[in-house]
Protein backbone atom coordinates (compact mmCIF):
# COMPACT_ATOMS: atom_id res chain seq x y z
CA UNK A 1 0.00 0.00 0.00
CA UNK A 2 2.72 2.46 0.92
CA UNK A 3 6.48 2.49 1.17
CA UNK A 4 7.55 3.13 4.74
CA UNK A 5 10.96 3.67 6.31
CA UNK A 6 11.53 2.51 9.88
CA UNK A 7 14.60 3.92 11.64
CA UNK A 8 14.91 2.04 14.93
CA UNK A 9 17.99 0.64 16.63
CA UNK A 10 16.35 -2.05 18.71
CA UNK A 11 16.24 -5.14 16.51
CA UNK A 12 13.41 -6.87 18.39
CA UNK A 13 11.12 -3.85 18.29
CA UNK A 14 12.01 -3.33 14.65
CA UNK A 15 11.23 -6.97 13.80
CA UNK A 16 7.76 -6.75 15.40
CA UNK A 17 6.96 -3.42 13.78
CA UNK A 18 8.18 -4.65 10.38
CA UNK A 19 6.14 -7.84 10.62
CA UNK A 20 3.02 -5.97 11.71
CA UNK A 21 3.18 -3.26 9.07
CA UNK A 22 4.10 -5.73 6.33
CA UNK A 23 1.17 -7.84 7.47
CA UNK A 24 -1.04 -4.84 6.82
CA UNK A 25 0.23 -4.69 3.26
CA UNK A 26 2.89 -1.96 3.58
CA UNK A 27 6.33 -2.19 2.08
CA UNK A 28 8.74 -1.34 4.89
CA UNK A 29 12.51 -0.78 4.89
CA UNK A 30 14.53 -0.75 8.07
CA UNK A 31 17.60 1.28 9.05
CA UNK A 32 19.23 0.55 12.39
CA UNK A 33 21.42 3.64 12.90
CA UNK A 34 21.01 7.38 12.55
CA UNK A 35 23.43 7.85 9.63
CA UNK A 36 21.96 4.85 7.75
CA UNK A 37 18.50 6.19 8.36
CA UNK A 38 19.43 9.67 7.15
CA UNK A 39 20.92 8.20 3.98
CA UNK A 40 17.85 6.05 3.33
CA UNK A 41 15.50 8.95 4.06
CA UNK A 42 17.32 11.16 1.53
CA UNK A 43 16.88 8.56 -1.21
CA UNK A 44 13.30 9.59 -0.93
CA UNK A 45 9.92 8.49 -2.18
CA UNK A 46 8.69 7.27 1.21
CA UNK A 47 5.04 7.43 2.13
CA UNK A 48 6.02 8.02 5.75
CA UNK A 49 9.02 7.71 8.06
CA UNK A 50 8.90 6.16 11.51
CA UNK A 51 11.91 7.08 13.59
CA UNK A 52 13.12 6.46 17.09
CA UNK A 53 14.50 9.38 19.07
CA UNK A 54 17.56 7.74 20.50
CA UNK A 55 19.57 6.39 17.62
CA UNK A 56 23.23 5.47 17.46
CA UNK A 57 25.28 7.98 15.48
CA UNK A 58 22.63 10.64 14.98
CA UNK A 59 19.80 11.66 17.25
CA UNK A 60 16.34 11.09 15.76
CA UNK A 61 15.19 14.70 16.13
CA UNK A 62 18.41 16.01 14.54
CA UNK A 63 17.91 13.66 11.63
CA UNK A 64 14.38 14.97 11.25
CA UNK A 65 15.45 18.61 11.45
CA UNK A 66 18.09 18.02 8.75
CA UNK A 67 15.44 16.41 6.59
CA UNK A 68 13.00 19.29 7.07
CA UNK A 69 15.70 21.85 6.38
CA UNK A 70 16.42 20.07 3.11
CA UNK A 71 12.78 20.65 2.21
CA UNK A 72 11.58 17.09 2.70
CA UNK A 73 7.98 17.11 3.93
CA UNK A 74 7.51 13.32 4.18
CA UNK A 75 5.16 12.62 7.10
CA UNK A 76 7.17 11.46 10.09
CA UNK A 77 6.12 9.69 13.26
CA UNK A 78 8.53 9.96 16.19
CA UNK A 79 8.84 7.03 18.57
CA UNK A 80 10.26 7.59 21.98
CA UNK A 81 10.66 6.15 25.41
CA UNK A 82 10.57 9.75 26.61
CA UNK A 83 6.85 10.10 27.04
CA UNK A 84 6.34 13.32 28.88
CA UNK A 85 4.53 16.27 27.47
CA UNK A 86 7.57 18.50 27.01
CA UNK A 87 9.40 15.81 25.05
CA UNK A 88 6.36 15.35 22.90
CA UNK A 89 6.24 19.06 22.14
CA UNK A 90 9.94 19.00 21.27
CA UNK A 91 9.33 16.07 18.93
CA UNK A 92 6.54 17.87 17.13
CA UNK A 93 8.51 21.13 16.93
CA UNK A 94 11.42 19.35 15.32
CA UNK A 95 9.23 18.50 12.37
CA UNK A 96 7.48 15.35 13.56
CA UNK A 97 3.88 14.95 12.46
CA UNK A 98 2.96 12.61 15.29
CA UNK A 99 4.58 11.33 18.44
CA UNK A 100 4.11 7.94 20.03
CA UNK A 101 5.53 7.04 23.42
CA UNK A 102 7.03 3.62 24.02
CA UNK A 103 5.75 1.12 24.86
CA UNK A 104 2.97 1.31 22.30
CA UNK A 105 0.43 -1.08 20.85
CA UNK A 106 1.26 -2.13 17.32
CA UNK A 107 -2.34 -1.37 16.38
CA UNK A 108 -1.91 2.20 17.65
CA UNK A 109 1.21 2.66 15.51
CA UNK A 110 -0.48 1.21 12.43
CA UNK A 111 -3.55 3.43 12.90
CA UNK A 112 -1.41 6.52 13.29
CA UNK A 113 0.69 5.66 10.23
CA UNK A 114 -2.51 5.13 8.31
CA UNK A 115 -3.74 8.52 9.48
CA UNK A 116 -0.48 10.15 8.33
CA UNK A 117 -0.61 8.45 4.94
CA UNK A 118 -4.19 9.42 4.33
CA UNK A 119 -4.11 12.73 6.04
CA UNK A 120 -7.40 14.31 5.03
CA UNK A 121 -7.30 17.61 3.28
CA UNK A 122 -8.93 19.85 5.86
CA UNK A 123 -10.78 21.55 3.03
CA UNK A 124 -13.03 24.46 3.79
CA UNK A 125 -15.98 22.26 2.84
CA UNK A 126 -18.78 22.78 5.30
CA UNK A 127 -20.90 19.79 4.34
CA UNK A 128 -19.47 16.29 4.71
CA UNK A 129 -21.11 13.32 2.97
CA UNK A 130 -20.46 9.63 3.43
CA UNK A 131 -23.00 7.14 2.11
CA UNK A 132 -26.31 7.98 3.72
CA UNK A 133 -24.59 10.28 6.25
CA UNK A 134 -24.61 14.02 5.78
CA UNK A 135 -23.10 16.53 8.14
CA UNK A 136 -23.59 20.28 7.83
CA UNK A 137 -20.83 21.76 9.95
CA UNK A 138 -22.05 25.33 9.65
CA UNK A 139 -25.60 24.57 10.70
CA UNK A 140 -24.47 21.92 13.17
CA UNK A 141 -26.88 19.41 11.67
CA UNK A 142 -26.37 15.72 10.94
CA UNK A 143 -28.68 13.55 8.88
CA UNK A 144 -28.76 9.88 8.11
CA UNK A 145 -30.93 9.14 5.10
CA UNK A 146 -33.88 11.44 5.65
CA UNK A 147 -33.64 11.32 9.44
CA UNK A 148 -32.26 14.20 11.50
CA UNK A 149 -29.62 13.21 14.01
CA UNK A 150 -29.90 15.05 17.27
CA UNK A 151 -26.19 15.63 17.87
CA UNK A 152 -24.48 17.48 20.69
CA UNK A 153 -21.60 19.78 19.62
CA UNK A 154 -18.94 17.29 20.71
CA UNK A 155 -20.71 14.43 18.91
CA UNK A 156 -20.77 16.58 15.80
CA UNK A 157 -17.02 17.07 16.07
CA UNK A 158 -16.47 13.36 16.67
CA UNK A 159 -18.60 12.37 13.69
CA UNK A 160 -16.83 14.90 11.47
CA UNK A 161 -13.46 13.49 12.50
CA UNK A 162 -14.62 9.96 11.66
CA UNK A 163 -16.28 10.99 8.39
CA UNK A 164 -13.06 12.57 7.19
CA UNK A 165 -11.32 9.22 7.73
CA UNK A 166 -13.75 6.68 6.31
CA UNK A 167 -12.72 3.06 6.60
CA UNK A 168 -9.71 4.06 8.64
CA UNK A 169 -8.96 2.79 12.13
CA UNK A 170 -8.84 5.65 14.64
CA UNK A 171 -7.61 4.86 18.13
CA UNK A 172 -9.02 6.10 21.43
CA UNK A 173 -5.91 8.12 22.06
CA UNK A 174 -6.19 9.78 18.64
CA UNK A 175 -9.82 10.73 19.34
CA UNK A 176 -9.02 11.98 22.81
CA UNK A 177 -6.21 14.14 21.47
CA UNK A 178 -7.88 15.38 18.29
CA UNK A 179 -11.57 15.66 19.18
CA UNK A 180 -11.29 16.64 22.82
CA UNK A 181 -7.87 18.22 22.71
CA UNK A 182 -6.65 16.58 25.90
CA UNK A 183 -3.14 15.24 26.19
CA UNK A 184 -3.45 12.79 29.06
CA UNK A 185 -4.74 9.23 28.89
CA UNK A 186 -8.17 8.82 30.45
CA UNK A 187 -8.44 5.96 32.89
CA UNK A 188 -12.02 4.94 32.26
CA UNK A 189 -13.57 3.83 28.98
CA UNK A 190 -14.70 7.40 28.35
CA UNK A 191 -14.14 7.36 24.61
CA UNK A 192 -16.07 4.11 24.27
CA UNK A 193 -19.15 5.58 25.95
CA UNK A 194 -19.00 8.67 23.78
CA UNK A 195 -18.64 6.59 20.62
CA UNK A 196 -21.36 4.25 21.88
CA UNK A 197 -23.73 7.14 22.32
CA UNK A 198 -22.95 8.46 18.85
CA UNK A 199 -23.44 4.96 17.46
CA UNK A 200 -26.87 4.70 19.06
CA UNK A 201 -27.90 8.00 17.55
CA UNK A 202 -26.71 6.89 14.14
CA UNK A 203 -28.69 3.67 14.42
CA UNK A 204 -31.76 5.04 16.15
CA UNK A 205 -33.88 4.46 13.06
CA UNK A 206 -32.98 0.78 12.96
CA UNK A 207 -30.32 1.30 10.28
CA UNK A 208 -27.28 -0.98 10.07
CA UNK A 209 -24.24 -0.13 12.14
CA UNK A 210 -21.69 2.23 10.63
CA UNK A 211 -19.14 2.40 13.44
CA UNK A 212 -17.24 -0.81 14.03
CA UNK A 213 -15.14 -1.52 17.12
CA UNK A 214 -11.66 -2.65 16.23
CA UNK A 215 -10.78 -4.92 19.08
CA UNK A 216 -8.19 -3.47 21.41
CA UNK A 217 -7.38 -0.56 19.13
CA UNK A 218 -10.22 1.75 18.31
CA UNK A 219 -13.04 2.34 15.84
CA UNK A 220 -13.75 2.54 12.13
CA UNK A 221 -16.56 4.39 10.42
CA UNK A 222 -17.59 2.94 7.07
CA UNK A 223 -19.98 4.08 4.39
CA UNK A 224 -23.17 2.08 4.23
CA UNK A 225 -23.46 1.62 0.48
Amino acid sequence: MARLLLIEDDADTAADVLADLRGRGHEVDWAATGPDGAQAARKGAWGAIILDRMLPGLEGLELLQDLRQAGDRTPALVLSALGDVDERIRGLRSGGDDYLAKPFALGELAARIEALLRRPVEAPETVLRLGSLELDLMAGLGRRGGRDLDLLPRELKLLAYLMRRPGQVVTRAMLFEEVWGYRFTPKSNLIDVHVGRLRRKLEAGGEPSLIVNVRGIGFTLSADD
Binding site: D86, Y182, V193, R197
Partner: peptide, 25 residues
Protein backbone atom coordinates in the same frame (compact mmCIF):
# COMPACT_ATOMS: atom_id res chain seq x y z
CA UNK B 1 10.26 22.90 35.28
CA UNK B 2 6.72 21.90 34.39
CA UNK B 3 5.62 25.47 35.10
CA UNK B 4 6.69 26.46 31.60
CA UNK B 5 3.20 25.71 30.33
CA UNK B 6 1.36 28.07 32.68
CA UNK B 7 -1.18 30.53 31.35
CA UNK B 8 -4.44 32.21 32.37
CA UNK B 9 -7.07 29.56 32.98
CA UNK B 10 -10.85 29.73 33.46
CA UNK B 11 -11.89 27.16 36.06
CA UNK B 12 -15.52 27.47 34.98
CA UNK B 13 -14.72 26.31 31.44
CA UNK B 14 -12.59 23.53 32.84
CA UNK B 15 -15.55 22.30 34.87
CA UNK B 16 -18.09 22.45 32.03
CA UNK B 17 -15.68 20.75 29.60
CA UNK B 18 -14.85 17.99 32.07
CA UNK B 19 -18.48 17.38 32.93
CA UNK B 20 -19.28 17.17 29.25
CA UNK B 21 -16.48 14.62 28.87
CA UNK B 22 -17.70 12.45 31.75
CA UNK B 23 -21.45 12.92 31.34
CA UNK B 24 -22.04 9.81 29.13
CA UNK B 25 -20.03 7.67 31.54
Amino acid sequence: RRRAGFGPLALGDLVTDSVELFEPL
